[in-house]
Design a protein around this nucleic acid. Structure first.
Length: 878
RNA sequence: GCCCGUGUGGCGGAAUGGCAGACGCAAUCGACUCAAAAUCGAUCGCCGCAAGGCAUGGGGGUUCGACUCCCUCCACGGGCACCA
């Protein structure tokens, strides 16, 4: 009987409806002893999903469905990272309200996601722009404020001149705003900060415990936090050369061992001593002003030449009162790292070397590389930053730099000036506090009120949430909240006098720093916001998303979770136990002769011998095939998931996304690959149909005995089951796909053999065939759930495969009675030998040496040694 | 500049220190067809008629045995970048 083609379009919407009606993916907050929380990074509602989303959510869905089948209570929710600039841009460009624009986009994208057949619990859907979401965020802000994790301080900030808002350090990439791409300027503003630096050490230390995170991400965070251990050293200043009120200069160094190589001191232009000295020195004041002028744009700082100005002040060397060092103001010293002052040792620091070479201050090497004679060791243009032995350093001579560092630290710690030690050990971090104030409308309002009498006053908890006004205008630059005629005018909660509402909103990265906790609380919970429920679900067992969030989102979320713990919102430290960073979806680029990009949909590819040629489908104009790049609107090399799904079905899109490349690498979207996936869908459909027919009459009870062909089939079935299960656990979806292909090929051969035998089929074989068909369907069900349901139904099941438990692997079927061992002679394969599984090594050795091929390879020589690796290989050494 | 990762057929890639190239894509030949598509069968790392040899970026090392471990060089990709 011919089998009809599988109609994806019809079947997919039908099964989606069944899943929906039966509510099988809704997760109750009960029975959490075996819980599994799988989460994909939630999308920004830009309006349409792209192939990156398809890849991300396909992976998460495989994990969710697999874990559900293996008996876990699975939480797999979806929501919307809904605040942000694009909504305001749309408002400015198209006169749509950001809220309307956002919710339209959410509706459109939700429909797209639904068409993918994802096993999501939509009852927990959330949008961060919803007051019922951000009221919790405002509450947490106030809790953080109370315990000192939120601070208000004046500081130099990164100002994005295009978006007219402040950016966090993490949001400045190559000196440009992460969103606008405009060169970032430095401005001095009073801003709200999350005190992420208070957790610098725990955030760093806990990276060691995140053993299910990619090494790369942990390293990136480690470098970003940037811990360095060093010494704070107080240098006395020569009073004759020093402005009134100043008597010493404190510096931070990680290389106290090089103290005898010091040639100068350098101050940041913002350093108080520099400012004090500038008051009496107009030339110095001008130099500092010049530094600041140059310092407005990050790009200029990056390229600036090292410049210094001698203040005339002299600092006294801590080990020699007669040795003084000139104090410079230098443009490359940062005020907000260490103390904003350094001592310069040119021999062993490239920047310092460049500086002394410019100003002629001399070089004395103090660390001599191994196997180099101290007398002949000279530094000219390249500083030596390696290890060795101390030279020219008095009592340190002969020590290693590590020993010298310890010796210097101990001596200066024990020496007092005034009532304090001259030096103390200090740990410094590169990490800066997280500035969250944004001068924008479409974000979470910061719930404080400014009062002339009382200062900054928190909004009362009963007045939360502070909601955004809807009647705002976007017809001029700046913050629409600030322009609003009445919104900011409120009375002070403390004194009742006139107050002004804070008009800054929070960085949208705050919204995404805790959404994973919010999902644990279903809307209809008896006790909303019960920390016990959050703790029962948290941490996220498997988090999946792009590597681009390695620092920003993932570090903020780690901080936020700790802050939530400190304020009693959760009981855990780390939000994501397992993290997987998937690769990008890439595609060939196409362009016309004049350089205009052309989308793949407009191009026809032809093969001319070995070379592929592209033409514009409409006019036959020749098209240049460009490099394979990340799908982007600007290069127009995108493929619309909607079009793929309507042409081939969601299962095909999902399958191809999972099949071609390892999930952490980039995958190239190709038409050929999609067609291959589509062919395989039809092949599986036919194969399951045929296997189902053979297995149709099988007895319900499992036969006591299996004939050799039936046993062989069962072995293949259980091997596939074990292999696919292992591969899914490791998220090796491409390997998983390969094993499914392999099993499908085997099953196809077995069916072919059974057909050719023509006649009645033994019942044990029909039973094994039915088992094989069931298992095959279950194996691909997490990846192609619609096809799987359709196949499952044709196999006569009245249950849903989405709810079927994962079959148990019968381990005894994986063990072979006889094994084929490869035989090597001197490491080169010469033969194979078939031996019983439990054969003794001596027995195997004898069998191997009797082989003709082995004797021939030995060529009359007698073997020196025979290495038998049980179950693996035999190697004869001659 | 510093740190990290990657390198395997025409392509994507597989391989607890144990048969390199599973599986897929592409290609070639054949069957079916009036023809095409679909489907099915065969071939498919390189050299060689073959026997055999050579092959996991290059070179060296450890090992009975190395894609896998170590050293070194090269290429590509990524992160950080006046952080003292």
């Amino acid at each position: 009987m011919p089998i009809e083609r599988y109609n994806a379009a019809e079947a997919e919407s039908r099964w989606q409806k069944v899943w929906d009606e039966r509510g099988i993916f809704a997760t109750p907050n009960t029975n959490l002893s075996k819980k599994y929380y799988v989460l994909e990074m939630f999308p920004y509602p830009s309006g349409r999903i792209h192939m990156g989303h398809v890849r991300n959510y396909a992976m998460g869905d495989v994990v969710a469905r697999f874990k559900r089948a293996t008996g876990h209570s699975v939480l797999h929710p979806m929501g919307w990272d809904a605040f942000g600039m694009p909504a305001e841009n749309a408002a400015m460009e198209r006169k749509v309200h950001p809220k309307a624009w956002t919710y339209q986009n959410i509706a459109a994208m939700k429909a797209q996601l639904k068409s993918m057949g994802l096993s999501l619990d939509w009852s927990r859907e959330l949008a961060t722009c919803d007051p019922s979401y951000y009221k919790h965020q405002q509450k947490m802000f106030l809790d953080f404020l109370r315990v000192g994790l939120v601070e208000r301080k004046q500081s130099k900030v990164n100002w994005d001149p295009v978006d007219q808002t402040v950016l966090a350090n993490e949001q400045v990439i190559d000196g440009r705003g992460w969103r606008s791409g405009a060169p970032v300027e430095q401005r001095e503003l009073t801003q709200w900060f999350f005190a992420i630096t208070k957790f610098a050490q725990p955030l760093l230390a806990a990276l060691e415990t995140l053993d299910r995170w990619p090494e790369k991400v942990r390293l990136m965070q480690k470098n970003w936090i940037g811990r360095s251990e060093g010494l704070l050293v107080r240098f006395a200043l020569d009073p004759k050369t020093t402005p009134d009120g100043e008597s010493e200069l404190e510096i931070f160094t990680t290389r106290p061992d090089t103290l005898f190589g010091a040639k100068f001191m350098a101050l940041s232009p913002d350093h108080p001593l520099a400012q004090a000295a500038a008051k009496k020195n107009p030339a110095l004041a001008e130099f500092i002003a010049e530094c600041k002028r140059h310092g407005t744009a990050q790009e200029i700082i990056d390229k600036a030449e090292k410049l210094g100005f001698d203040t005339g002040i002299k600092a006294v060397h801590p080990f020699d009162p007669s040795w003084t060092l000139p104090v410079y103001v230098a443009n490359f010293i940062l005020m907000d790292y260490g103390t904003g002052a350094i001592f310069g040792c040119p021999a062993h620091d490239q920047r310092d070397l460049d500086f002394v070479n410019k100003y002629g201050l001399g070089v004395t090497p103090v660390v001599c590389p191994p196997e180099q004679a101290p007398r002949s060791f000279v530094i000219t243009n390249t500083a030596y930053e390696g290890d060795g032995r101390m030279i020219n350093s008095r009592f340190l001579d002969g020590m290693t730099p590590a020993q010298a560092r310890e010796d210097v630290a101990r001596r200066l710690e024990n020496e007092k000036r005034g009532d304090r030690p001259v030096a103390q050990r200090q740990v410094n971090y590169r990490l800066r506090d997280w500035g969250i104030s944004r001068q924008r409308y479409w974000g979470c309002p910061i719930p404080v009120i400014h009062c002339a009498a009382c200062g900054v006053v928190p909004v009362l908890e009963k007045d939360l949430p502070v909601t955004l006004p809807e009647d705002v205008t976007f017809d001029r630059p700046g913050n629409p909240l600030d322009h609003h005629p009445t919104w900011k005018n409120v009375s002070c909660p403390q004194c009742g006098g006139p107050g002004r509402r804070e008009t800054d909103t929070m960085d949208t990265f705050v919204d995404s720093s805790w959404y994973f906790v919010r999902f644990t609380d279903p809307k209809n919970a008896a006790e909303p916001d019960d920390p016990k429920i959050a703790d029962a679900w948290m941490p996220v067992d498997q988090y999946i998303g792009g590597i681009e969030h390695a620092i920003l989102h993932l570090l903020y979320s780690r901080f936020f979770t700790r802050a939530m713990k400190q304020t009693g919102h959760v009981g855990i430290d780390e939000p994501f136990a397992g993290l997987f960073t998937q690769g990008m979806v890439v595609h060939e680029t196409y362009s016309r002769q004049n350089g205009d990009w052309v989308s793949p949909a407009e191009v026809t590819i032809e093969l001319e011998g070995e070379t592929r040629r592209a033409r514009l489908s409409t006019t036959n104009e020749p098209i240049v095939i460009g490099p394979i790049e990340k799908m982007s609107k600007s290069k127009r090399n995108t493929v619309d998931p909607d079009e793929i799904i309507s042409a081939y079905g969601a299962d095909v899109a999902r399958w191809f996304m999972l099949s071609d490349s390892p999930p952490d690498r980039d995958v190239e979207w190709t038409e050929r690959g999609v067609q291959g996936a589509a062919r395989f869908v039809q092949r599986l459909w036919r194969l399951v149909g045929e296997a189902g027919e053979i297995g149709h009459g099988a007895p319900a009870a499992r036969p006591a005995q299996f004939s050799p062909p039936a046993l062989a089939l069962r072995k293949a079935t259980h091997k596939a089951l074990a292999n696919v299960g292992d591969a899914v656990e490791k998220l090796h979806f491409n390997v998983c796909v390969a094993h499914i292909y392999e099993f499908a090929n085997t099953l196809n051969e077995v069916i072919g053999d059974a057909d050719s035998e023509d006649g009645s089929v033994a019942t044990d074989f029909t039973w094994a065939m039915r088992e094989a068909a069931d298992v095959l369907v279950q194996l691909f069900a997490p990846m192609m759930p619609h096809l799987a349901e359709e196949c499952w139904a044709t196999l006569g099941h009245d249950t849903l495969v989405a709810q079927a438990p994962w079959p148990a692997v019968e381990r005894n079927l994986l063990i072979e009675d006889t094994i084929t061992l490869p035989v090597q002679v001197n490491g080169r394969k010469r033969a194979e030998v078939i031996v019983p599984r439990d054969a003794a090594n001596a027995q195997i050795e004898a069998a191997v040496l009797a082989l003709d091929a082995v004797q021939k390879a030995l060529d009359g020589k007698s073997p020196k040694k025979v290495i038998v690796v049980p179950q693996r290989i035999v190697n004869v050494v001659a």
